[in-house]
Design a protein around this nucleic acid. Sequence first.
DNA 1: TTGTAGGCGTTATCAT
DNA 2: ATGATAACGCCTACAA
Lengths: 356, 356
Amino acid sequence: LVHTGRRATITDVADKAGVSKTSVSFAFNKPDRLHPDTASRIRDAAESLGYRPHPVARMLTQRRTGTIGVLTPQALAVIFDNPFFSAFSAGVSAAAEESGYALHFISPLRGSLARAVGRATVDGFVAIGLSAAHPEVEEIRRSGLPMVVVDSTGMADQPTIDLDDQDGAHAAAEHLVALGHREVIVLGIEAPEPEHEPSPDSIMSRRLAGYRAGLASVGVHLPPESIIAGSATIESGRVCFRRAWELGRRPTAILAMSDAIAIGAMRGVRELGLSVPGDVSVVGFDDIDVAQYLDPPLTTVRQPVRLKGEEAVRLLLAFINGETPPDIHRTLATTLIVRGSTAVPPRAAPLTNGRG
Amino acid sequence: LVHTGRRATITDVADKAGVSKTSVSFAFNKPDRLHPDTASRIRDAAESLGYRPHPVARMLTQRRTGTIGVLTPQALAVIFDNPFFSAFSAGVSAAAEESGYALHFISPLRGSLARAVGRATVDGFVAIGLSAAHPEVEEIRRSGLPMVVVDSTGMADQPTIDLDDQDGAHAAAEHLVALGHREVIVLGIEAPEPEHEPSPDSIMSRRLAGYRAGLASVGVHLPPESIIAGSATIESGRVCFRRAWELGRRPTAILAMSDAIAIGAMRGVRELGLSVPGDVSVVGFDDIDVAQYLDPPLTTVRQPVRLKGEEAVRLLLAFINGETPPDIHRTLATTLIVRGSTAVPPRAAPLTNGRG
DNA sequence: TTGTAGGCGTTATCAT
DNA sequence: ATGATAACGCCTACAA
């Protein structure tokens, strides 16, 4: 086993074994077409040279990379902090590994997502949270590679995996009004990239529509001051609840657009000396792993995050394999999971001002 | 903009613009060396053909991929469920993106990690949790690519990022004995791949040594029945605590080797009608995001997970860039974070049998 | 069963 | 300022 500093190539092996490059290639890819003795002689030569086929050269001739790209308009460092994304990635991984594909994560490169896409050696993309209004979508789609879009809208001609956001939000709001709540605030998720015009059909707006519909059934209206948007983090949830309080809101219930936000809100509620759900009920969204282990366990709208990832990859692989699946758009259902963080409002009446 | 079905190549652009391939290449890579008019004519031709340089072909000549590989001996679907890994990935991403590198996740391909490594088009690896005893380490290292190993041991000749596990565990145990605890159990992490011989210097054994040392200072011994190992998940923590209880252990405190395990253990404690920390104190390990938001907030040993990822990538990039950093082995420190899940034991005496 | 030769799409070298 | 030509390392008709 000699290291010359230079990586051994197929030619080196061919020379050492006294055969042609073709035979070396066969020895690795189609051993059946070689005389057993020849094959083993070649393997020996390869071993002694430490030869391994160069993956890039191989990709170039085979015109296939064996990896799928996960595309995100945000920095990876940010989204890996989001348990939602981790669960999604787990689903993507499961389906990808099942089919022998590796994963390549793609985020903006020096400010440009399209540039990163151009550099990526993948057979197709799964894009998460890529808005149709993103300035680079057109350029990205021009890559010509198949792409499945998750949690996005306004891309009718593109394969998509979506969630019935409105339905889930509606169920959450209905649950609260059924318990008797009338003073409700919404802690929402603002678009990650404020410079882009928010899509009129964003996740935020779909969930908001669901909340509104659920509350409207008992005549409850949602004024702008009752809707506070921040990022989908725990800290943001805490801060947003505090902001609502400072704005004079005295809700008996909180509709949070993510579990992380809900956790932060619960924290914020306690910091004011109030209790969950005694004084304030909280409903989350997502049903992340820890939701059921919180104290009290979180009532939340479960979405099949992991399944989202799996379905996206399955759909993508169909395209990569040249198939044309009948259902290009798939919408996954939500489930309201009622746990301990919601209860009837205190004395069936809202907190009055002057208590904080 | 015409789509012929076949992807446009540099030759197509050269023909259309009436120049050589070289000039087209220059137009994209070294525009300065071209007459402005020529450059813009080439760009127009490229645009109209929808041409984009093929990343694989480019990699082949440049002998550089611009991506770093994250290597894990477990299935990605499993580790993405682990918040610890997410935090680590966030650190890796941050450092990688900072330097314009993309991320490629590599897990065993059809049972073989070495096979997956062989297919990966990366400039180097960050391996997480790769034991020196792994049957394929030798083969992996033979790839010739630089590799930084995180959370592993027995790889003296390999660059490593490690944690002072023993010290952190020691601090946790000392904290408990200082509070007066004498009946303590350990909920550990068993090797992910039971078929491989567990390293005598694994994370598990290092932390165990730390726990033992801390308890020994007051003469407390840790019998085998007081050490229950499972996977690093919430559910496993719950189950392992129950198992200890069924084995007759009546601890006043739990040393958990991960926060996930600690969360599960807290759940298990409550299921028996006991309270945390009133009846049983719990100490975790990691200090994941939600730890501080639990009720009670979790006392835990914080490790700089994110920093681990960042440091690993920085070290790796140094090697990729041909440098030879002086410090090949870096050990990061832990911090004991005392929160509400630990308190003095009930009546300063252990629970007696017969109460469960 | 094995070898020859061309192609994959780009960049690098060296001319002009 | 531009071009011709040779790598880069492998795969694969097609030929022998």
